[in-house]
Simulated scan of single mutants.
Amino acid sequence: MIVPEISQNAAAVADHYDELDPVYRRLWGEHVHHGLWTTGRETPGEAVEALVDTVGDRLGLIPGQACVDIGCGYGSTARRLAVTREVRVTGFTLSAEQARYANAHPEPGVDIQVWDWLANGLADASVDAAWAIESSEHMVDKPRFFAEAHRVLRPGGRLVICAWLAGTDASGWKVRHLLEPICREGRLPSMGTREEYEAMGTAAGFELTGFEDVSRRVARTWPICARRLVKALLVDRETRRLVLGARNRSSFLGIPRMILAYRTGAMRYGIFTMSKARKDGAPREPGKLTQ
């Protein structure tokens, strides 16, 4: 597990997203996560929605199911899946600004709350599916993140995680100059490897039913972000003021680090699919509603 030299907590994560909210929406839009390219011809907007749709596919969502979006950001994933899969979604975010934006763009069946997932207050076995798109990295206690997901899922429920991962063999300068600063500047309390995520999921009681390394298909996100940021700094006085005056402005130094981290293999991007066993001991089959 990569741990930053300066420890990060939930308050630091909330402050990061609250302060940089206007910049993120100007540069990234409503989806603050990677895009997923298949043909290479997708627009950035199509690519971010492709990642959301991939998550929906991995979950095997069925109309009417109760779902949880862990670290929901602006609620865009929750809204898209609520509309396209006809499910109900409760989203959790640490950022009051993200929740304010989400609740200003309501969608029937979507409820966005400002709450820490590690103390979410949901009842045991109360939801059918859960997902975390690039939010597990911000969890101070990752084993508890998995334990809470397992607790709130009904037997047969699925969890899909899209995660920034440290390369299994990353060491030396890759850790010192790429991964540790990415954690510190991006307010990540830690960054795990694929193997560590799988071990934590298994320890919480999940069965790993799928994993896909999509690093090559998401990596172009960061050159796009870099170009957008440079252009905005050059031509948009308000963005320049917001970025240069922010307490969290060091976060933007992470963009070139992310580009290099992907190119060197220091960092990977993985999609995990995990299932909670049914009462008969078997995971739910794709497309079948838990009884």
Results as ranks from 00 to 15, higher is better:
Val89His: 03
Thr90His: 13
Thr209Gly: 08
Glu42Arg: 00
Leu153Gln: 09
Arg176Tyr: 03
His138Leu: 12
Ile182Cys: 02
Leu81Ala: 02
Cys72Thr: 15
Gln113Ala: 12
Ala170Pro: 07
Glu198Tyr: 06
Arg58Tyr: 06
Val175Pro: 13
Val89Cys: 02
Thr202Lys: 13
Glu198Phe: 10
Pro189Lys: 07
Met267Asn: 06
Met191Pro: 02
Leu253Ala: 15
Cys72Val: 14
Val243Ala: 11
Ile112Leu: 14
Lys174Ser: 12
Trp28Ser: 06
Ile271Pro: 00
Trp28Glu: 10
Trp28Pro: 00
Glu134Lys: 11
Arg263Leu: 12
Arg100Met: 00
Asp111Gly: 00
Gly73Thr: 10
Arg220Glu: 14
Glu107Asn: 00
Glu97His: 02
Trp173Leu: 09
Gly265Ser: 03
Val114Ser: 04
Leu234Pro: 03
Val52Glu: 10
Ser136Cys: 13
Glu30Leu: 08
Tyr17Asp: 01
Ala14Ile: 04
Leu234Arg: 15
Arg263Gln: 14
Gly254Trp: 07
Leu122Gly: 02
Arg41Val: 00
Leu188Asn: 07
Lys279Phe: 01
Ser126Phe: 04
Pro106Met: 01
Cys225His: 11
Pro155Lys: 09
Leu188Ala: 07
Arg85Asp: 06
Ile112Glu: 07
Arg228Ile: 02
Arg184His: 01
Thr77Met: 13
Met274His: 00
Ala282Leu: 11
Thr273Met: 09
Arg220Asp: 13
Ala119Asp: 15
Gly71Val: 05
Ser250Asn: 09
Arg176Pro: 00
Leu208Glu: 04
Ala232Ser: 15
Asp53Thr: 07
Arg58His: 11
Ala119Arg: 15
Gly205Phe: 01
Leu253Tyr: 12
Val214Thr: 06
Cys225Gln: 13
